[in-house]
Write a protein that binds this DNA or RNA. Structure first.
Lengths: 418, 418
DNA sequence: TTGACTTTGTCTTGAAATTGAACGAAGTTC
DNA sequence: GAACTTCGTTCAATTTCAAGACAAAGTCAA
């Protein structure tokens, strides 16, 4: 195991672009709109036209903003629209899953320009997995014809509890070798001028939903990932709620049945052990064996004795009763837990994502039913529960968003603008 | 029932004292410390000594701040300490419980100067209960020798879900007649220049814990009230989390046993129906009847056939096994729910308050055990679970804190300073 | 006691930040 | 095509702010 005493983990994140408070406000206004005129910025910030004009000239001179032509007239002279200079450089998003590795190279506006996908095993040593990430980053930069210094930031999502301030994993059940491994420094060694942000995989999905999905402008929502494990990303007041130890949202090990099967965490009857991907497969195999589902049995034989969650999904589409019951039961367990969380947290939206998220409406309906049955009416009348539209892309989108989140930093070091 | 169409509910709260951004910063620094020198304010705000001096002169001239003499020397000239001018006026805190009414008159610094306590029945019409509050406020002001205009704000805590922005109760199970009743306007009619803030009773307890209890400087905590009902106040990032409909923290109706007794909310096996005061009494009566606790039986006879939660508590102190088991079982149910919430929210502290909160360590120990057994180690290693030190005073303290919370308002109307 | 050194708070002054108003450019509307 | 709008810049006037000088009050050690 990695020895943390040898690590030189940098507790302080450094952003590549330092701006002053006024510039940060312009950038914040910019993010609200995407493309924006000077007059609009003046209205949003409350500054005089003179100051706004001057501030923007500074930002354009530094190359952070570019003029992108005229906008529609409001009854007078057409405004000149500005946006972030995409030529400023690139950011990298990395989504590390239990069995896969996904990377994207994007411009500072968050538009993805290149992607890489590979299968891997996260139980391997971090040097191996992250080393491969470094290689792939190099590949993408080369393909982009990038000059040194054009890569500005890296956002990494990992499937385990993260101490966000230090950027390390803490007691990750899935990947014990990663405990306290200084992910940030590992990348910084190769790309010294780049800042690196590490977060939980579900948190980045929530961030992705907020930035590029239906979570925009939603104050309070929960993003639930159902895949090999189950986890939640919490947006409270428009910001990720990480809790006091950075492990908020770890709902996979909530107890749903005291007499349930033993989970890998040691307890019995955890939500994850009863409703996530492996549990679904397990039940499907039983159904295939005991003859209650000839279809699943047939699929299993065709697959060489193996069943995957996708097969159960396919069986659902064929209206296979056993498969439907498996999914319905998973949805109900997830929904029962969510009902508790809805009463407690009162979000306006719940987004479901992860590998199981494409399982069509059977899953969604049973989740909704369970939540509505057990939550307070006041909390559910305006509650929306839906799949994340970004689907399988939510993770990588969020990783890119995480990277661009900390691109600009206010000089006092306390507040992040973007 | 009150007809909301006739109401003229003012959606916008108006604070009696409007300050500019700079003044608000001084007041914020003041709240951090209580009494503070100009130099300290200069350090906290980052302003030059000149600006600080000038800003404070303005606040002293307006009468908001007063000089309270010299502080201890730091090796040179003694600083002159400033604090909020308590002579500025009074605030009123009102804590409305299911069966009781508690009011306090405090100075703007939150120091309670007078108190009133009465039993009532909250199921009565709001005009009756709130009318009595108005009378008691008048009494206290008279006793204080107050001039008109000296009362600045009222903070009201009510036992039900509150739409905080509008200051009205929404679908309150305990008090249906209060639905949409314009509490704010009811007081404003009598005290026109006063602002009124209404919030859930548990939220104000959380606020009280944050202001005058052990919750100071704690970023994320949950305040759990166990009394006639069970509810939670959530502090996320130092602020009350009210959720998207204002009903966050309503954990009393989380299901702990699908086959449990019917709750007044209509569902079965709610935490509140199984572990709160009435359930404890119910179990105690059974124990008294079936002979498993001679002590409880004896107490019941002495009380004229009635048992109260306090009696069960007293029996616990006498090591009565049946009583201990009742409390242990309540604690475990509360703890099981809290375990879920700890995994989800990852607070660093949980404070237990309400009528059952004086039940000594038996309750606390069983809650702790249940939480530790079912929560993630990472979330519990630094978690503290304790009774609220303020005890029975947390509610009224919080109501006063709520009133003083919105005493000063920044002129842009968006940010509250204090 | 005395003299050197600190801390606190005020005041003055010059520099920097910010605004208001004027103005030209560019469009719309009737 | 005249009158009115909107957009953005320029420049002088004003406001804001910080640095530094200074006086007051106090500590500390010889």
């Amino acid at each position: 195991m990695y020895n943390p005493r040898n690590a030189n983990t940098s507790d302080r994140m450094t952003a590549p672009i330092i701006v002053d408070t006024a510039e940060a406000e312009v950038l914040r206004a910019l993010r609200l709109r995407g493309r924006i005129s000077r007059t609009e910025i003046s209205n949003i910030t409350g500054w005089s036209k003179a100051k706004t004009s001057q501030e923007i000239r500074g930002l354009v001179d530094k190359g952070y903003l570019v003029d992108v032509g005229e906008g529609a007239s409001q009854g007078g002279r057409k405004p000149r629209l500005l946006r972030l200079n995409n030529g400023l450089g690139y950011v990298i998003g990395i989504d590390i899953g239990a069995t896969s590795l996904e990377l994207a190279l994007a411009d500072v506006g968050g538009r993805i320009l290149q992607r890489r996908y590979e299968t891997t095993d996260v139980r391997l040593k971090p040097e191996i997995v992250l080393g491969r990430c470094r290689e792939l980053i190099g590949e993408m930069l080369d393909a982009q014809g990038s000059r040194p210094g054009q890569m500005l930031g890296i956002g990494v999502g990992v499937p385990g509890p993260v101490d966000f301030a230090r950027g390390v994993l803490v007691a990750p059940p899935l990947m014990p070798d990663w405990q306290d491994f200084p992910i940030r420094d590992f990348f910084k060694e190769f790309f010294p001028s780049v800042y690196v942000v590490v977060d939980n995989d579900v948190n980045i999905m929530a961030l992705g939903e907020q930035r590029t999905g239906d979570g925009a402008n939603v104050d309070h929502f929960i993003f639930v990932k159902i895949g090999t494990g189950i986890g939640a990303g919490i947006i409270s007041n428009g910001k990720i709620h990480r809790g006091s130890d950075g492990c908020a949202g770890d709902i996979g090990h909530i107890c749903v049945d005291k007499d349930g099967p033993i989970c890998r965490c040691g307890n019995s009857g955890c939500l994850e052990a009863m409703a996530a991907g492996p549990a679904i497969v397990e039940k499907a195999i039983q159904a295939a064996q005991n003859g209650s589902s000839p279809l699943l049995s047939q699929m299993r034989e065709a697959n060489g004795g193996i069943l995957r969650p996708e097969d159960v999904n396919a069986a659902c589409r064929e209206a296979d009763q056993a498969a439907l019951e498996i999914i319905r039961s998973s949805g109900q367990m997830v929904g029962d837990v969510l009902a508790t969380l809805v009463n407690f947290f009162n979000p306006s939206h719940i987004f479901i994502g992860g590998g199981i998220a494409n399982f069509g409406n059977h899953l969604l309906v049973s989740i909704r039913q369970a939540v509505l049955r057990r939550s307070l009416p006041l909390a559910t009348t305006r509650l929306s529960i839906n799949f994340s539209r970004a689907g399988a892309d939510t993770g990588i989108t969020g990783a890119v968003a995480l990277a661009s989140e900390y691109l600009f930093m206010v000089e006092d070091g306390l507040h992040y603008s973007f």
